[in-house]
Amino acid sequence: MTQFLLPLIPWILLAFIGITLLRLIIGPSLGDRLVALNVLSGLALGFLVVQGLLQGRELYLDVALVYDIFGFLGFLAFAFFLKNKSNGDNP
């Protein structure tokens, strides 16, 4: 039964990503946009793993693993940059 369900999962994930992009665009403050980015990174990881399983290639799962490990480093840089910027604006 799951063979029929599995090809649907990427489309569901794409719909979720679309809804989250809406939040990313309309999010009034910076915090909202960061939250939406966090959700996007989790959903993208799920998308990569599902695609790897559907195509039957282990290589895609390695890509997902590296994405998983380095995903939060991007966040760290982003938050650090924003903090420094807001400190510089009103010292």
Binding site: G31, L34, V35, N38, S41, G42, L45, V49, E58, L61, D62, A64, L65, D68, I69, G71, F72, F75, L76, A79, L82, K83
Partner: peptide
């Protein structure tokens, strides 16, 4: 085994992401 290792790293990376955002807030 690859999915298992991804899950193990996900248990570390996902809380770290929300922690960074909460700290920023």
């Amino acid at each position: 085994s690859r999915i298992l290792i991804i899950m193990a790293f996900f248990m570390i990376s996902s809380p770290t992401g929300s922690h960074i955002i909460a700290r920023f807030l």
